[in-house]
Amino acid sequence: MPPTRAPSSRRLPRGRRLRTGVVLPLAVLAAGCFQYRAHPPNVAPATEVQGEVVWSFAWGLAQEQPNIANCNDQALAEVTVQDNLAFSLLTVVTLGIVSPKRIEWKCAVAPACEGELRPDSTTVPLP
């Protein structure tokens, strides 16, 4: 295919400039959410994401813990920490006395050992 370049204008029309200048920052602010993820490579998640907002009080003197009860005794595959404008503002306004964050996680699959596809004499056939 011969190389082509799409038509492009560097000088935006006035309406567009207004939209870009006003709407864009508002839209970005509305969508703004910082996210940090920790996950080891090649570990498959077993579950959908679960999460909750946890609060830290008095500069870390007390803190909430997420209640992870859905993993069927397996490890975590992934943990995500989310911050947003409201959380950040609250932390700044209260001078760190309260600081919320959203924690999300996915459980890991079980590290299943391989088995033998042979009948087990202790198991009865299905009815």
Binding site: E48, N70, A110, A112, G115, R118, T123
Partner: peptide, 23 residues
């Protein structure tokens, strides 16, 4: 409903466990 389906013995592959999941 959305269910997570776990084998009864998730750490060990067994024919009995497989058939139990089928059941």
């Amino acid at each position: 409903k959305l269910y997570d389906v776990w084998n009864a013995e998730p750490n060990r592959s067994t024919l009995a466990g497989y058939n139990g999941t089928t059941r």
